[in-house]
Design a binder for these strands. Sequence first.
DNA 1: GCTTGCGTTGCAAACGTTGTCATTACAGCG
DNA 2: CGCTGTAATGACAACGTTTGCAACGCAAGC
Lengths: 362, 362
Amino acid sequence: MPRTRATNVDKTGIVQIAARLGVSPSTVSRALRPETAHLVRADRRKAIMDLAEKQHFSPNAGARMLRKGMNATLTVVVPLDENIFFSEYYGRFLAGTLHAAAARGWGVQISTMRRNAGSSFREAMQLLSMDSSGLIYLAEPLSPQQIQELKGFRRPFVLTKSTLPEHTNPGELDVPVIGVDNLSGARSVASLLLQLGHRRIGLLLGPAGSRDAHERKQGYLEMLQKAGALPRPEWIYSGPFSAETGRVGMARIMQGPERPTAVCCANDEIAFGAVNAAHLGGWRCPDDVSIVGFDDGIWATACQPALTTIRQPLADLAERAVGLIVEAATNPSRSRRVALDDMPAPMMIRDSTRPLRPADRR
Amino acid sequence: MPRTRATNVDKTGIVQIAARLGVSPSTVSRALRPETAHLVRADRRKAIMDLAEKQHFSPNAGARMLRKGMNATLTVVVPLDENIFFSEYYGRFLAGTLHAAAARGWGVQISTMRRNAGSSFREAMQLLSMDSSGLIYLAEPLSPQQIQELKGFRRPFVLTKSTLPEHTNPGELDVPVIGVDNLSGARSVASLLLQLGHRRIGLLLGPAGSRDAHERKQGYLEMLQKAGALPRPEWIYSGPFSAETGRVGMARIMQGPERPTAVCCANDEIAFGAVNAAHLGGWRCPDDVSIVGFDDGIWATACQPALTTIRQPLADLAERAVGLIVEAATNPSRSRRVALDDMPAPMMIRDSTRPLRPADRR
DNA sequence: GCTTGCGTTGCAAACGTTGTCATTACAGCG
DNA sequence: CGCTGTAATGACAACGTTTGCAACGCAAGC
């Protein structure tokens, strides 16, 4: 007996439905998908849909994927690192991705970047995005070699600029990169402080090796230099993106002989720490010192004082990334390989900045 | 000309590799998968693997899924609601899911629960889990009717107890449910306070309609009643799971004529608010009042004073859920339909509780 | 009445991989 | 030398859906 040939009645598929109704599978297929439903006569369509509903029919995703060569799913690769869901950056970006994907009827698979040392980076990415039609990479920073490896990747993908090494020019790489315009953001917030009359401005910067930190630093320095207001060396402090960095850095700045009237921070968390240390040291913000952040995270408006900061347009970023993937996957021919796409980062002016007090002017 | 018949050289598939090496697709298939690799001669296997690597071969997920009838991917359904990634509960559960899945070589698709009013709940779930082999539901609470609808769901799935209505007994439903043993957790922490000598104990409870809040309330009340220490009505306050609830509730308690020496909260956030309000009102915690939370979230140890609380074993919960899905998907025959599986919730004794001061004893 | 066109349907060929079965070659053994 | 067992491979049939093409019926137009 060559296997049970009993036209498996319990199975629910397009052919079973077709058999039950005496039509061909083609017709059922057409009736059940919105984009081809108009091809089948109304009463017949109704009968098909009713039976499908009754049988709890759900199309076989594998067959569909095989046939169509793609999938309405994209993969986002995040670092395994720690509890990424509590991070401002990843949390907001992921939420944006979910939203943008859902709006297009797409699903999102989230994978943690696990480095099985045996295989190449490209292979690892292939494995992670096996079941999906595209990849958004926002995990750990990539080496130039890894970026080259990605060239052979056979699926649409997008990198975030934050994952690129500090000194590579995204325009030269031949891979699609999206990012935030840190440079303009930093410039504009430095410019605001200058307009408010500040000249002695400290910098609490982010970690070496972080491209975002680097770009923000460039923006701050460039603008301050143009105004002839370069900070004294002891007003500059660098550390990880954490409140602790802000606290330590601010404390050190406050110990110096000459004191700045404003401080630019590499992100909001550092700024929180700075505000905190300032208060502990008897300085009020913004009265005695103006402090600006970068991110506009959920706490920026919730804290005291509400933080003047640069809004990282993470939702827009996610929307853009998803848009690129979906377009490339849907329409593989017209592959517009965006070299770099920097999203503008607007300034949010709140309560942690104020004009320089006349008393502090010299 | 009936389509280009040119043995598409640019395509990379198992058959192309086979053709290039003069072997059959079967052999290539066997060579490329670890579980069958031993069947093919060593030198041949090496040649195949090398060529596959060189051609950036990646197996067609659709074909594989069609053939094998499943997929190493599961879907987690979360509420669209708000920024779920910043919530203690969802963030930790999702991280646990990613971890547990990755350990098994599985991927995780995260879908937001979008209610397209047109279709039934089951249809919505089918749509969300189209491309995956199982479903973990932890979105909005379900109505009994929706739970019934799920019965016809043709994929392995698991519900979290938190999504069930307050008054349904998970044992009676014929669906797999996992959850935290809120009752024992609440009992044990109430018991701790009693052992420390407290008799006047207030309750800051969670929102009506939340099963977790309900169960914790039951646990607290049950234990206090057994000790003959039922709280006065004005010591009981309910509200959403937020610090605000804790602040308001604690402030009201402090205004009353008689004051409790300890307060049980429905979760950590409420406890934070309570500590906050206590301090503002001039009560020190734990010196003047002991306060306990529920969750053991990331802030429980970071705050002042470190919170005595019940640890929600969310990582274990996620591990369990993933394990059930993977097992059911891998081995559909032996479907052990776990009715209810309550995970124990251990107590973390920290600095927000202390023995009743003799002065407060009466 | 014949052509033309349209609406509706069926036929059949993919899509790429996997597992079963059959086949071959070769070693070991009597 | 013939038999048996094992290792290595190939042939081939699924898996369920989609879609180009052909076919059919029927109405409209000449």
